[in-house]
Design a protein around this nucleic acid. Sequence first.
DNA 1: TCCATATATGTAGTTAACTACGTAGTTTTA
DNA 2: TAAAACTACGTAGTTAACTACATATATGGA
Lengths: 162, 162
Amino acid sequence: MTNVIDESGILAISTRLQRLADALRKEGQLIYQSFGLDFEPKWFPVVYTLHLKSSLSVVEIANEIGYAHPSTISLLKELEKQQLIRSKKDKTDERKRLIVLTEKGKTLVNAMQPVWENMQRALSEIADNKHNLMKAIEEAEAKLKVSGFFERSQKIRQSGNL
Amino acid sequence: MTNVIDESGILAISTRLQRLADALRKEGQLIYQSFGLDFEPKWFPVVYTLHLKSSLSVVEIANEIGYAHPSTISLLKELEKQQLIRSKKDKTDERKRLIVLTEKGKTLVNAMQPVWENMQRALSEIADNKHNLMKAIEEAEAKLKVSGFFERSQKIRQSGNL
DNA sequence: TCCATATATGTAGTTAACTACGTAGTTTTA
DNA sequence: TAAAACTACGTAGTTAACTACATATATGGA
């Protein structure tokens, strides 16, 4: 199991992140199935957000979950098809569509609580190590927010040595 | 900048990983451009592997970089178009195509050394924190190799409480 | 008050990975 | 030694995110 990429260090980091994200998403799908639930991991951010905030516009949801708005729209379409959400025009601003969970959606969220608890434990086993993965992600995101990868590269370059 | 997903904990981890991978890949593209190099981050795993191993078949490359072979084939097509690699039939096994870097490819690899060094430093600034991102990824991957997310979920479920 | 600018939503097309399946050589085994 | 099983490569179609652009409504300033 020699693997050049695992040894090429940090340069292949985006490859490694993507691989890991893919694997977890796919296995997440199997877990929902095994509990007999008709739910997909990619829906989690939207549904969880609406569970907490109850009524939000498309762009507000996009901001909450950190996605571009067209991605959010396509998730909302799927959830509408599943009858887990519905939407109505905002009366005070005709441009906005306010999204809410349906009764079916709320029921499903309740049914998913033990599954989420189960997943959380399994994920903790995987991610809680000497270097905690969630904390590492949070710290890296915080750094990027202060100054991006490109900006840091430019600064290093201008500093002379590279 | 309230963000439900950042606070929803580990359940949205695959979303977070993907976001981070995307951001780093895109900024990586800008960095190559800023150095005047016609190179894309997604090509790195293949090119770096061929730089170290010089002649490999399609499936061997796929295994080295941890991708499915069709993904590798489409990367190889792009690299062939860029004239960075070429291939010839293996004489002892007619099924195999042996891939090598061209002279242009080798020259580019040399030209990229300082850029890779620069990127490595910038990435270290981002990822070397209290919880080191690369190490966290490695640890999580090791755990998954022992027993996957699904398998762990099943075991927790069977243990009774969930 | 009306025009310019900004915001909210939507559509179309792209990207970078994947799985499923097909074909052609190679190896094993009955 | 011929059939079965395996391996290598390739194609087609899918997925889950993205950017760029279009349209409709709202708002602020001259």
